[in-house]
Amino acid sequence: MNIFRLAGDMSHLLSVILLLLKIRTTKSCAGISLKTQELYVVVFLARYLNLFTRYYSFYNTVMKLVFIATSVCIVWYMRFHKVVKQTYNKDLDTFRHYVVIPPCFLLALLVHHEFTVMEVLWTFSLYLEAVAILPQLILLQRTRNIDNLTGNYIFLLGAYRALYLLNWIYRFFMEKAQARWISWISGLVQTALYADFFYYYIKSWKNNEKLKLPA
């Protein structure tokens, strides 16, 4: 495992820990999109089915279980926790997230590496993950006061994707890995969606101002 991959995974893990910490300590999920979180549950369940078919490493197995468990846990908090659910910005989180699931699945049926159940589900999870952040970015744009934890959560999530791009470049040149266009392109699309957010996040950080996205 190269340094970019490890840093990417750690950034992803940290983002989830940060979000859970925000929810548990402030008893609030304000600014967090339930739609995005629900899409992540679908992404992880579809992708990590290979938990049962193939063993890679202890690290790999533990991380998969952590990502499945934490994503379910976050959705549970936002939907069912007596206090937390009342802080959810339901009226602002209006992206109809279920409409992106069928097109992603259809695309996975058409464009994949190999036509097997596991491979199509894996590919579906890549396509879905690429767009899963959209409801969150839309909610963010509608939120007047973005708290630091929410801003940092999205930054870490975007950093995870950007580091994975570096990881693929490293693997391609240093490990002579095969070209994997499906992962690369969907990863590139996913990272590109963060570009605008990154721009304003870094700007606010440099100017020592509160993060605010233009309407």
């Binding site: 995974d9 290979n50 790999n60 998969k64 190999e114 994975y164 890995a177 994997r180 992962s183």
Partner: peptide, 10 residues
């Protein structure tokens, strides 16, 4: 193995 190429990623 072509499959193990990215499938060890998360």
């Amino acid at each position: 193995n072509a499959e193990s190429n990215v499938h060890d990623e998360l």
